[in-house]
Design a protein around this nucleic acid. Structure first.
Lengths: 336, 336
DNA sequence: CATGGTTTGTACAACGTTGTAACCAACGTT
DNA sequence: AACGTTGGTTACAACGTTGTACAAACCATG
C-alpha cells in the first residue's frame, strides 16, 4: 500500500509529470494512445492525487464547513444532511463543525481556525453579533438563522414573524382564547425568539385577544427538557392555557410530555404547536402541528450563495434570501 | 484582509522565515525578545498558517473523518457529537461524511476518496463486507457497529447479543408471554439485526417461551416509518403480542405511534422496548425503555484506537474493543 | 518545399511550510 | 589560549502539484 506520486506514474508511462497531470485533470490535447498509457499506469499504481499539494498549488481545497451549535439538535442534523447533499452536487466535501453555541467558540470558528483548510463557511450562529463578524470576512461566508441578518455576509432565512403569526392564528382559529407561548428569551442570543414572539403577539392582536405576560414562558435553551419545564411552570402558575405555541419542535415535544404527565389531553384540553418540522414530530403521540421551513431549499440556497462568493465577486454587497415555509397542522391541534 | 505568509511576518520582525516557523511551532530555543518581536508581528498581520502547505510538508492533516450512513438518524447524530468532542481533545478536526449506506458509496469512502485529506477514518458501515475492506487499509481506520468485526481493522462495538437478551428477559420478567420482535433482516447488511435476534431468541429460551416466527417482523430500514409499518403488520396478522422488542429506538417510536393509533395502551396492552437510548425516547409518550450503549465511551475508544494507529504501529493486528451498556427501563414497560 | 498554424509534450518555477545541516557567538572547561 | 559545547539563528531543499513558457512534431496551405 505505498503511496505513489505523479512522478511514479510518469516514469511508468514513459511521459513527463505534467502530461500525467494533464490526463488527471482532463486536459484535452493529449493523444489518445498517450492518455491510455497514462491511465493504465494510474490504475496499476492505484494513484490518488495528493490533495494537500493540489490545494497548496491551486489555493482551493474543495472543502466547505458547516458550523452549527449542536449536532444532535434534530433541526441542525436534518439541515446538515441537506447541506451535504447540495454541496456534493457541486463536488464539494463538507466539514461539519460543532461550536457549542458559545460566543467565543463561534468567534474562533468564524475568524477561521480552519482557515486555509476550507474555501467557505455556512454558519448558523447563536451568540455571535454582526459586529463580531465585521472585518473578519476573510473566508466567504453564508449565515443561517435569525441571529444575524443584514450583517456583513450573505444570509438565508425564513419569514419568522409571518410563520409564527400564521401558526398562532391557526390556534386562534380553533377557538382557543388563552394561547400561551414557550421559548421567549431576553438575551441578545434570542433573535429567533424575538421574531417568533413578535409574530405571536401580532396574531393575538389580529384575533382580538389580549396579550398576557403570564402566558409567555421563557426557555434558556430550546431542548425537550426546557419545553417540559416551561410547560410545568405554565401549569402551576395558575393561568391555564388552552393552547401553546412553542418556538421550536423540541420544546413542543417536551411540552407534550409534561401535559401527558399532568393528565391533560392534547388537543382536547390544550392544543400544541411547534416550529421546524423535525422528523420526531411526525411520529410523536399526538403528531405535532408545526411550521415546516423548506430545509432542502435553505441548504441549497446557502450552498449556491457560497458558491457565488467563492467563484465570483467577493466584494458585492451581502444578499438576503428567504426560503419558503408552510403550515403543517397535525393531531396536536386538529385531533384525530 | 490580505493573507500573509511566514515570509511577511519574517520581514516585519526582521528575522528569518524559519525562526518564525519555530515560534509558531513552539520550538524552545528562541530568545525571549526574538519570540516577542515575532509574536507581535504575527498579531499585527493576523497571520494564520496555511494548513495545506503544512500538511504537504508534514504528511499529516490533523483531520479525521467520521463516516455514517445518515446524519439525521439520531443515534449517529449523538455519536457524531461525542466523536467531535473526543477528537477535539486531541487537537483534531472531524470531517463528517454521509455515505447513504450504499455499498458502492461506502466503498468509495473506505478506499479513500478523501485520501491525503484525512489522517484516519472512523467508519460505521452498513453494507460493506470485510472483503471490501481488505487490502485498502491505506488510511488508518476504526470500524463501529456490527457489520464488520474481526475484520481487517480495529473495531469498537457492544455486546449486542447480551444486551438484546437482557432487555428481552426484562419483558419476560414482567410476565409477558407473547413477545414480538421488530427489525429482523435477512440481508447480509443486517448484522446488528442478526445479533439482536439471537439475543431475543436466547432470552425466549431462558424464559421457557416458544419461538414463534409470526411474532418476528422484518424491517428493511430502521426508521420510524418502518417501525410503524411493522407494528401494523403484527397487529393485523392475528397474533396479538403483549410485548415488542424493537431492534432500535426509532423503530420503537414508530411502533408506539401505531399502537396509539390502534387504541392500545402501552404498557397495559403491549409493552415496548427499544435499543440505542436516543434523546427522543426520554420524552416520548410513554417514555421508552431501552438498551443504553455508552456512546461517549464508544466515541472515545474509537478516537483513541485511531490515534494509536496514526501515531503508532500500523501493522499490529486489529484490536476488538467493547463498550459497556446498561438497561434503561422506563414507562413503555414499567408504566408510570 | 518553405510557411505558418495547431497539436502534443516538456522543463521549470512556484504555492507556503518545515527538516536538515550549517553557521556564528557566547560560554565554560581544560 | 585553545577547545569543545550549547544556544540561537539562518540558508537551502524538499513535500506533490499545476501554470507558464516554450520546443518539437505534425498538418495543411500556397
Amino acid at each position: 500500500m505505498v503511496r505513489h506520486r505523479l512522478k511514479d506514474v510518469a516514469e511508468r508511462a514513459g511521459v513527463s509529470v505534467k502530461t500525467v497531470s494533464n490526463v488527471v485533470n482532463g486536459y484535452v490535447h493529449v493523444r489518445p494512445d498517450t492518455r491510455a498509457r497514462v491511465e493504465e499506469a494510474i490504475a496499476e499504481l492505484n494513484y490518488r492525487p495528493n490533495l494537500s499539494a493540489r490545494n497548496l498549488r491551486k489555493g482551493r481545497t474543495g472543502v466547505i464547513a458547516f458550523a452549527v451549535p449542536e449536532l444532535d439538535i434534530p433541526y441542525f442534523a436534518e439541515l446538515a444532511r441537506h447541506v451535504v447533499t447540495a454541496a456534493a452536487e457541486l463536488g464539494w466535501t463538507v466539514l461539519i463543525d460543532q461550536t457549542g453555541g458559545g460566543r467565543e467558540q463561534e468567534r474562533v470558528v468564524a475568524s477561521g481556525i480552519t482557515e486555509h483548510l476550507i474555501d467557505g463557511l455556512i454558519f448558523s450562529p447563536l451568540a455571535l453579533t454582526a459586529e463580531d463578524l465585521t472585518g473578519l470576512a476573510g473566508t466567504p461566508m453564508v449565515l443561517l438563522g435569525e441571529r444575524v441578518d443584514h450583517g456583513p455576509a450573505d444570509h438565508v432565512g425564513i419569514d419568522n414573524v409571518g410563520a409564527a403569526r400564521e401558526i398562532t392564528a391557526h390556534l386562534a382559529g380553533l377557538g382557543r382564547r388563552r394561547i400561551a407561548a414557550i421559548g421567549s428569551q431576553r438575551t441578545p442570543e434570542g433573535a429567533s425568539a424575538r421574531l417568533r414572539l413578535a409574530g405571536y403577539t401580532a396574531a393575538l392582536a389580529d384575533a382580538g385577544l389580549a396579550y398576557d405576560e403570564r402566558l409567555v414562558a421563557p426557555a434558556t435553551a430550546w431542548h425537550r427538557a426546557d419545553g417540559a419545564a416551561a410547560m410545568r411552570a405554565l401549569l402551576t402558575s395558575g393561568v391555564r392555557p388552552d393552547a401553546v405555541f412553542c418556538f421550536n419542535d423540541t420544546l413542543a415535544l417536551g411540552a407534550l410530555r409534561t401535559l401527558h404527565e399532568a393528565g391533560l389531553r392534547v388537543p382536547g384540553d390544550v392544543a400544541v404547536a411547534g416550529f421546524d418540522d423535525i422528523e420526531d414530530g411526525r411520529f410523536s403521540v399526538p403528531t405535532l402541528s408545526t411550521v415546516a421551513p423548506d430545509k432542502e431549499r435553505i441548504a441549497r440556497l446557502a450552498v449556491e450563495l457560497l458558491a457565488g462568493r467563492i467563484d465570483g465577486d467577493r466584494t458585492a454587497p451581502p444578499r438576503e434570501l428567504s426560503a419558503p415555509w408552510n403550515l403543517a397542522p397535525r393531531e396536536s391541534t386538529l385531533g384525530r
